[in-house]
Every structure is written in C-alpha cells, then in structure tokens.
Design a protein around this nucleic acid. Structure first.
Lengths: 205, 205
DNA sequence: CATGCAGCATTGTGATCACAAATGTTCGTC
DNA sequence: GACGAACATTTGTGATCACAATGCTGCATG
C-alpha cells in the first residue's frame, strides 16, 4: 500500500475516534519518524486531513488537532442533524432484521464501553452504530460528508466525553431501533435527530 | 503567497466555475509548468483538491476532473437541497434591503450571461447569487460544505449546461428574492429547494 | 521577580532526483 | 488491416536537501 495513504488512514481513524485531544501539535518530521517514512508522505497525509477539517493549520503552517469553538460545535451538530436523518431515511427500506440485530449487538457494546468509562471505545462504537445504518442508504457521497463531520468532531468529543450523558446514548439508540423495526420514517428521523443533536447540544453550555 | 496555495486556489476556481470539462487528465509536471513551480506544490494542491472531490484519482494515481454518474449527481443535488435551505433560513433574519438589492443586481447579470450562452459565466454568477445569501448565515462550516458540493459539480454543470433550462434560473431567483423581502422562511426554503434541485434533477434524465 | 532580546533549535516549503509502474507507440506477424 | 509484443515515454511516489521563517530558551537588564 502507498505510504502516504497508510499514514492518512491511520491518523484519520485516530482523530475520528478521539484518540487525540484538541490542540495537540504535530510535525511532519515527527509523523514521518512515527511511521518510518520521510516527510513527503507525511506532508501529503496532513494536507489531505487538513482539507477534511481533521487537522488545523496555524498561520505559519504549523499542524495541530482542531480546538473547536462552541459556535463551530453547534454548527457541526446542525449539519449532522441535517444529513443523518436523511441517510437513515434512505436506509429504512433496506433495513432488514439481520441489520437490526447487528445494530442491537453494537448497541450492547456501547453500553459496555460506557460502563467502563472508555471514551475512545464509546466514540468508536457509537459511530459504528450510525455508520452501519447509513451504509444501507446507498448514498456514498452523503455518507462521506457525514463522516467528515465526525472527523472534525473527534478530538472535541474526547475532550467533552466527561460532560456527555453517555448513559443516555444506548436509550436513544433503542428508539432508533424501534423506529427501524416499525418502518416509521418520521419516528426514525426524529430519533436520529435526538441522538446526534441531543448529545452535542448540551455539552457546549 | 505560498505557491501550493496559489495553485490550489486557481484550480479550485476553474473547476468550480466549470472551466474544465469532466474527464480531463492533469499531470503534476504539467500543472507545475503551467504555474512556474516544481512538482511539489502542484502535488499538494492536487492532493487537497482530491480530498474535496474536485479531482479524481485513478487506481494508478492519475489525476483527472471527475465524470460523475447520474446517481452521484442526484445525490449531490440532494445534499444541496438539504444544506442550502438551512443556510438561507439562517440568513433570512440578517437579510436587509441592501443585500436584496445586491442580489437583484447579480440576478440581472445571470440573465445577461444566459442570453450570451456563456456557460462559465452562468455557473459563476449563479453561485455568486447563492453565496451572497449564505454568507449572511454566519455558518462558515456549513457554507464550506455547500461549496464543496458546488466544486464537485463544476465540470458536470459545464457538460450539462446545454441541457439545463437556464432561462428559468432568474425566475427561481426572483422567487427567492420575494420570499426574502417578505421574511417568509418556509417560502424561502421552498424557493431555494426548487432552484438547486430543480435545475439538476431534470438534466440527469 | 518580571520583561525583553539575542541566539538557537525546530519546522514548513519548494526543488531536485532516482525509481518503478503505467501508458502510449511502433513495428512485426498473421 | 487487426492484433499483440517489445520498446520508449510519461507519470506518480518517496527521499533528500537548502533555505527562510517561526517559536523557544536562556540570559541579561530593569
């Protein structure tokens, strides 16, 4: 596999899952050393991640994980609340019983990692729950945009993990599952909105 | 200004405004020569544009303007129909008379370039009309996502320019202006939806 | 003890090069 | 004339280097 792609993918997952805190400084040489490559692929990976909002550039070109303002957090939450109900809506006709059972299993894992206080595990399994639904929507461009938003929120979610009422997520997810089982499109969209916006709305206050 | 940034900005505008057709091949050395720089800044600009969907990469790393499938076009139109009414809605309370007059002037330019059959001019002024509204929304992340969609659609809009009923755009825009003047949020959102989705829906058939 | 400045280390940028893979071309064969 | 193989060219990738600018450290000064 190409070096710059390997660096990109690894960093992307780390950022999206909240393995890095906001405001952490990265250097091209440091990334290169970490992955055993030269500056060149590190530079390309960083450039790509910056373009996706996963990393921030200072005026002088220094690289760091983004430290989002409350306004920006609310804005990204609004984008989630726009895109994700639509994705869920498109997935609904294709959501069979096997999918719902798989989602239920993922949701059990969410409860487990919440009980353990595992921030990264919580973010990862929570996103896995959502992605599993949206993959059924057959809308790759829309899903990519939603994932870009998750990516931008990764470090922030880690930072605010303590402030989130994480025990509520499995309940919200159960509402999603109920709507999926019932084929209730409006209920599904509302449940998704509650889950994605509700979780982030109150942690900026 | 930084070389790679200059290359990026220039190519980005060219792509967004439909100055390049879909499927055009680009090379790093060619871009470098065109801008009087080495491969390095050309590479970074291309990497960034690929990350934004403005350019496509073949399996072997060759760069070209994207040639979108009908499914992808409809999907991107749906994203526009989700994001842009929200942006307009947020701009509405801040839309004063001076803004509306400026929009009206832009719309006159749209009519002129349509009359001239100027595809690039049509795309540019049409996007300028929308951006002028959305800038008032004070939602930079959401606007950035909308612009990313425009960017991805740039070459395709050029290709399908002949099939678009471009003379209808100024009318749709007038409906937008009417709703803005009346402070009619629901009417505004509907007018935006008609404009962005309506224009693209019928050109994929 | 705080502050500002000089000197130093760190960092991103752009150019150049070697290399391998992919692409295009040419020529021969059927 | 069409097809295929060998060759030549083009192209992206990754490494390395020089350079300028930025950020940091420590020391002297008030």
């Amino acid at each position: 596999m190409l070096a710059h792609d390997r660096v990109y993918r690894t960093l992307r997952v780390q950022i999206m899952h909240g393995e890095l805190e906001p405001g952490i400084s990265l250097t091209l040489r440091g990334i290169g050393k970490q992955f055993g490559v030269s500056m060149t692929p590190a530079r390309e990976a960083v450039r790509r991640l910056v373009a996706e909002g996963a990393l921030s550039l200072s005026a002088s070109g220094r690289v760091s994980t983004p430290d989002l303002s409350n306004e920006r957090i609310e804005e990204l939450a609004s984008v989630r609340a726009l895109l994700e109900p639509e994705l869920a809506s498109r997935a609904l006709p294709r959501a069979h019983i096997a999918l719902i059972e798989r989602l239920s299993a993922i949701n059990s894992t969410v409860s487990e990692v919440v009980a353990k206080g595992d921030a990264v595990g919580y973010i990862r399994t929570n996103l896995e729950f959502h992605r599993t639904i949206y993959l059924r929507a057959q809308a790759p461009a829309m899903l990519a945009m939603a994932e870009t938003v998750w990516l931008q929120l990764g470090p922030t979610m880690r930072k605010l993990y303590g402030r989130m009422q994480r025990t509520e997520a499995p309940f919200q997810h159960r509402a999603i599952l109920t709507a999926l089982r019932a084929g209730d499109e409006q209920g599904l969209k509302a449940a998704i909105r509650n889950d994605v916006a509700g979780g982030l709305r109150m942690l900026v206050g």
